[in-house]
């Protein structure tokens, strides 16, 4: 059972996670031209690389990625190489996720980039834990997705989307020249949605630190050594507590056996 769990964890860490992040890196820059239906691949612009660096720093600060455990002198060389590849894939996936939700041109691209930079910069100094950070990121990417693929897509639609008509009615005589951008097919929005969903899945699956067999064994050894260094009374307490914990599922209804097990241990 434990062996299967270890294998599954290894499959997730060494194969599934890099695959997810690389697919995000691939799809994050994909656009579909509205007229020809041709695929357009947009390489990550410089601003998205900066945003990705800030996001990784935030992951490290929030404890979502404990860099010292992912890349450590205690790890085997192959493990470090594998972890570095996974973190590299995470970096490019983050950059491409930003690329996916940032407008490709125009004033709004710079406005949204500035908002991203401002939010990530402020978050560097906020108290975060991994779960809060993930929720905050979902909100951040979700908002940007709605702005780009719902509001701006409607504004740029060649046939005149609902927002364009609304803007035309409200801002009669005012030009939208500075807001002009390239129109893409609706498929671009679907690809972006799938990409962001996959990215969030990858973040959910990403453990703060890689727990390999060697690491688990080392920690178990540390716990045993700490246990042995305790005074006899405290060792009794710890031992009884461990036995209670192990037996708890079976002993919900039979309190007597708990007492019996603890007492047996003390006698031993």
């Amino acid at each position: 059972m434990i062996d299967r769990r270890t294998t599954n964890r290894a499959l997730v860490r060494f194969i599934l996670l890099p695959t997810i992040f690389l697919i995000v890196a691939l799809l994050g820059g994909v656009r579909v031209a509205s007229e020809t239906g041709a695929l357009v691949f947009v390489a990550p612009p410089l601003v998205t690389l900066i945003l990705a660096v800030m996001l990784l720093a935030l992951f490290a600060r929030g404890g979502a990625v404990v860099l010292g455990r992912w890349l450590s002198a205690d790890n085997a060389a192959a493990a470090n190489v594998s972890h570095a590849l996974t973190l590299g894939a995470l970096f490019f996936a983050s950059a491409q996720s930003f690329n996916s939700v940032l407008p490709d041109a125009g004033l709004l691209r710079w406005v949204l980039s500035f908002f991203f930079l401002w939010t990530l910069w402020q978050n560097q100094f906020a108290a975060f834990d991994a779960r809060r950070l993930l929720r905050s990121l979902i909100a951040l990417f979700g908002t940007a997705f709605v702005i780009k693929h719902v509001l701006l897509a409607s504004l740029y639609a060649p046939d005149g989307g609902w927002l364009k008509r609304l803007a035309g009615a409200l801002l009669e005589g005012v030009t939208l020249g500075t807001l002009e951008g390239q129109a893409f097919a609706p498929a671009t929005g679907y690809i972006s949605f799938f990409t962001l969903a996959l990215y969030v899945c990858g973040l959910v699956l990403l453990p703060p630190a890689p727990d390999d067999e060697a690491g688990e064994a080392a920690r178990a050894d540390e716990i045993v050594a700490a246990f042995r260094s305790l005074p006899p009374e405290e060792r009794e307490q710890v031992g009884a507590a461990i036995i209670d914990d192990v037996r708890t599922p079976e002993l919900v209804t039979t309190d007597d056996r708990v007492t019996t097990d603890a007492e047996t241990y003390r006698k031993q």
Partner: peptide, 12 residues
């Protein structure tokens, strides 16, 4: 475990 690790490196 090691096999999966190397497989993962190659695949990535």
């Amino acid at each position: 475990h090691r096999l999966i690790q190397w497989l993962g490196i190659a695949w990535t």
